[in-house]
Design a binder for these strands. Sequence first.
DNA 1: TCTATATCACCC
DNA 2: AAACGGGTGATATAGA
Length: 598
Amino acid sequence: MRTALKKLGFKRIIVCDTEYNFGVDVESTPLDGNPLRPVCVCAKDLLSNETWEIWLGEFPGEPPFPLDETTLFVAYNASAEVRTFMAAGWPTPARVLDLFAEYCDHRNGRDGESGRSLLAAMMHFGLDSVGTVHKQQMIDRILKGPPFTEEERREILDYCWSDVYALERLLSAMLPSIEWKGALVRGRYAHAVAAMETAGIPVNAALLDEVVARWSEIQGGLIREIDRDYGVYDGTTFKADRFEVFVERHGIPWPRRQKRKGQAVGSLALDADTFGDMAKIFPIVAPLAELRNAIGKMRKNDVPVGDDGRARTGIRPFASSTSRNQPSTSQFLYGQSKWIRHFIQPEPGHALVYFDYSAEEVGVAAALSGDKVMQADYLDGDFYVNFGVALGQLPSGCTKAIAEDHFHGVRDRLKIASLATLYGMGPPLMASRIEKSRAVAAAWIRGHRARYNVFWSFIQGAIDHLMRGGSLETELRWHLHPGRDPNPRSVANFPIQANASEILRVACCLVTEAGFEVCAPVHDAILVHCKIENLDRTVTEVQALMVRASQIVLGGFALKVGTEVTQYPDHLTDKRGTRMWEAVMKQMDLLKRRRRKA
DNA sequence: TCTATATCACCC
DNA sequence: AAACGGGTGATATAGA
């Protein structure tokens, strides 16, 4: 392997693993949400065989090895190592090979092992490693934090070394198949991920704590207000059997789910769509539909917030087959209901700016396929309106403003239709979504295929290629490999979503490397925190960097970027979540008033 | 009563 | 034959 490694042209190839925790409370319980605290670093230069071992409290002010462009830094889930270096005040590696990202890319779409851990990767290549039980024991001990006995120190270091040696063998197994251009671009993202995970999202922690503490009372209040007229809740749980009694009593023919074996009839369909449809026909259930919609899922209990008022959680880069980030939906503020975002608040003297690519998937589809008509419809005004004019649904010369003022709901339907059409939605479902007949839905789909025929043959080409056993590749070389029985609609989605995901990664790299404080990536958007005195400069520069990112991936095609600014002391708002937020705040007020009286 | 699965809620 | 894509996670339900 030595010769193969030397050929790469680096002066050093450093494989590295680190251990860390997030601080602990008095009972040695891990404090999630806090900044990372390094425990140890183990590293080896594969060219010189030199090794380094650094333990808690012995961290030098500078890293013991160079991390500039002459060093290839190799790790598994490299953002963790980068975070450790940041916490130690070290510079971060300039050239990163993240074998986690490369293993994900290598396996993506293929049948067989689904795990993506270091252990899973080792097993895949027929290499042995430490057992999962021992690994978990070590992690648990490390998270419990110091003081460590001398024996524990040795055990932890040995465990850390075992991963370094595992990594060395894994590198040797993966080396022939590593595709360097893509790998180094992916490796570069480790710094951005580390920077975003270190920053976290500033929240009004006092208010969040208060709402969490009184959540069951608030929820109870919300439910009591509505359920008086129905009696279908038991505490905070909706009881299907009580609701069944209710609909029977009122003679409402409620739709049912498919019958299952052993049942005379299927159980009631209680999803939001059914509730919405039924509320239109039987207004008596409307308030209940709204309540269910509002309280459907609102867990804030496990949002980890650090002592510094920052909500932090792992971004989990490359976790999806399109290489999107997949942070935990329960821990990540942008994964929860929109009203939860109202807890987000800039720090005093600061502002938060939400930058998002507008109609990103349409723009990416137009650029990748080279469909000039689609490109013009995206670039010249509003895509959905332009598509509507082409279909004869809107008058020629129509703009977004005119459509919103004079053709209520038309643009929304066109938006739903054009996005869903990209991924192969058929007329029956489309008809129900846009509330038109099946024939109209079919005509819109045909219209899309006719107007954007260059795009459609591009997509068909991708599907054919994969079905014939080829792999799909994004502009920056993330792959989808053929597996058993691929879903053609997923395949059609891949080029668009995977390239869009790549654009956001490049954007995160450019913006964090320029020194801006990026708090979170949100698929087609980023949240940036800045001092109010730097607000104008931040908006202009970050916007330009995001446009640049789209051009890097799309061969010069510039996506449009929208911005939304929130200045301290304002909270972030999202109009789709305002009603719920206000209802919750009202319940909070009622509780306070009641407590004051008592 | 416990556990696996299906369904549903939420996000982009 | 027909099918919008990518996800995470809680809970209700079925079956042991």
